[in-house]
């Protein structure tokens, strides 16, 4: 549940007033710094640099502010990578809560999903949202799983493969851990991050029992050719350095009705994605007709990510 204070749009109240004041102070300081140190804005214009500095939390911005922010992000990407990206702001669809299911009998550990995800979501080369864990047959002990497996051919006899990514928990511990509320659950059930509000404390990474969150230790090493220009504000737009990111069910695709990149890339059809509220959806059929389980269910995180086997 969201704190009702978050919804307060009245600028005269509480932290908003304080924020306005601090903005004024910082503006004056920043202007002074510019006079001393002329080209310190990374090629940005002064107004963009200021606007970046005073950018609001995504949920507190007005439509116009979001539009201005998006234009600024697009300009920044153009400067940095020389690519015209489109940052999207599609809201969650009404009556949609996303759920995911993986057929562990079908997953063969090819890792096609991992790399499709990395391409789609503009991941730095040291980050992968999906971890395909090679598990011993007849065991669900994640401690004995290995995601660095490197065989000539998969699947290997006596092993099975368990892909893990963000479970989009309904009771997400990472959201509770964030001291600045830079991460929250969207109405369609996706846990998202406002990369510009994140302070990089990495508390959420510690709180997540699935190791689904990843930290940008450096600037993402994206190339102009490899950059996916179709992005979303809460999704795969190029991230700054020093912030936490995670799987967001390809929010830039799924909110427009497309499949997430991992599902589209899966060559065996092990991945099933859909609307949990639609009784005719594939995911609902799986949940109602298969013996599904979730990882670390005893923690009460209520993941919206199920696993099942062929009987």
């Amino acid at each position: 549940m969201k704190n009702p204070d978050d919804q307060n749009d009245d600028p005269a109240i509480g932290d908003m007033a304080r924020r306005r004041f601090l903005q004024g102070v910082a503006l004056a300081t920043g202007a002074g710094a510019l006079a001393v140190n002329g080209g310190a804005w990374g090629g940005s214009t002064l107004s963009d640099a200021f606007a970046d500095f005073f950018q609001q939390h995504y949920q507190r911005m007005t439509e116009a502010e979001i539009r201005a922010t998006i234009e600024r992000i697009e300009r920044k990407a153009k400067r940095r990578y020389g690519v015209d990206i489109r940052v999207d702001n599609t809201p969650a669809q009404e009556g949609v809560i996303f759920g995911y299911a993986i057929n562990v009998s079908k997953c063969r550990g090819y890792r096609d999903c991992v790399h499709a995800c990395a391409r789609e979501n503009n991941l730095s080369s040291d980050t992968q949202y999906i971890r395909v864990i090679e598990m011993d047959r007849d065991s669900t002990d994640l401690r004995h799983g290995d995601h660095y497996y490197d065989h000539e051919q998969v699947p290997v006899e006596g092993k099975y493969y368990l892909p893990m990514q963000c479970m989009q928990c309904d009771n997400p511990p990472c959201v509770k851990a964030c001291p600045v509320e830079a991460t929250w659950t969207e109405p369609d059930g996706i846990v998202v991050v406002d990369y510009d509000w994140c302070i990089g404390c990495r508390y959420c990474m510690t709180a997540c029992p699935y190791q689904a969150r990843h930290f940008n230790w450096g600037h993402p090493d994206l190339t102009s050719a490899g950059l996916n220009p179709d992005t979303h504000y809460l999704g795969n737009r190029p991230r700054p350095r020093g912030v936490v990111e995670k799987c967001h069910f390809c929010v830039q695709r799924t909110r427009k009705g497309r499949q997430p990149a991992c599902q589209e890339a899966c060559p065996t059809g092990a991945r099933i994605f859909g609307n949990l509220l639609d009784p005719d959806s594939e995911i609902r059929y799986v949940l109602e007709h298969k013996a599904v389980f979730r990882l670390k269910e005893d923690l009460g995180t209520e993941p919206k990510f199920w696993y099942f086997r062929d009987e």
Binding site: R108, R111, E152, V154
Partner: peptide, 29 residues
Amino acid sequence: VFNCTACHYQHRPGIKARAPQPGPPVRMG
């Protein structure tokens, strides 16, 4: 949806093992 024959070669329907994509990198540093 894809037809059965899109994934299963009809004369030998078992799916063959193949090489996986490269594994995850070690984190920077």
